[in-house]
Computed example of a mutant assay.
Amino acid sequence: MEVVERYNPYTGLRLVDGVPDSVPAAAALGLEPPRFCEHCGRRMIVQISPDGWWSKCSRHGVSDSTAGERR
C-alpha cells in the first residue's frame, strides 16, 4: 500500500493525520493564494492578477483560482 504524503499549500509543512494544521487567516478568508505544492511541498511560482491567480509547481504543473469555481 502506497502512502501518499500531502502538504499544506500555505505553509509547505507535511500534513500528519491526527495533528492539527494551521492555516493563515488571510488564506482562510480566501485572500491568499497557495504558495507551496500540495503534492510535494515545493515552493511554487505564483502570479496574482485583479481577476484571480495561478501557481506553478516545477513537478506537478499549474493550478489556478478558477479550479475551485468549476462544478
Rank of each mutant, 00 (worst) to 15 (best):
A27N: 07
R6F: 12
V4A: 11
P24A: 09
R42C: 08
M44T: 12
Y10I: 06
Y10A: 01
E69K: 14
L29N: 12
V3F: 06
C40K: 06
R59G: 00
G61A: 02
P50Q: 02
C57A: 08
A26W: 02
Q47Y: 07
E69G: 10
P33C: 08
L31F: 11
L15N: 00
L29E: 15
Y10P: 02
G52H: 00
P20W: 01
G18A: 06
V16I: 15
P50D: 11
G68N: 09
R71Q: 13
A28I: 04
F36I: 03
S55A: 15
G61F: 06
S58Y: 13
E69V: 05
V3M: 06
E5Y: 12
H39W: 01
E69L: 15
V4N: 09
W54E: 07
G52D: 03
K56V: 13
R71P: 00
C37K: 02
R6D: 04
I48T: 15
A26F: 02
C40I: 06
R71K: 11
G61C: 06
R70D: 03
G41T: 04
W53T: 07
S58E: 15
G52E: 00
P24N: 09
D64N: 14
D51Q: 08
V3R: 11
E5M: 13
A25S: 14
M44L: 11
T11P: 07
A28R: 15
G12I: 01
I48L: 08
P20H: 02
W53V: 09
A67M: 06
W54Y: 04
E69S: 14
S65K: 06
A67N: 05
P33W: 03
P20Q: 13
A27R: 09
K56N: 08
I45H: 12
A25N: 11
C37M: 05
G30T: 14
S58K: 14
Y7S: 08
S58N: 11
W53A: 10
S55K: 13
P9C: 10
G30E: 12
C40A: 08
M1P: 13
C40E: 04
C37G: 02
E69F: 04
A67Y: 03
K56Y: 11
Y10Q: 05
G18D: 05
M1S: 14
D21R: 14
P9S: 08
C57V: 01
G18N: 08
V62L: 12
L13S: 07
R35N: 10
D21V: 15
E32T: 12
R42L: 10
M44Q: 10
C57R: 02
G18R: 09
R35S: 14
L31Y: 12
P20V: 04
Y7V: 11
P20Y: 00
A28V: 10
R6G: 03
P9Y: 07
C37L: 04
A26G: 04
H60R: 03
R71W: 10
H60E: 05
P50F: 03
R6I: 07
H60M: 07
V19S: 09
R14A: 15
D21F: 03
P50N: 09
P34M: 13
G12T: 01
W53S: 09
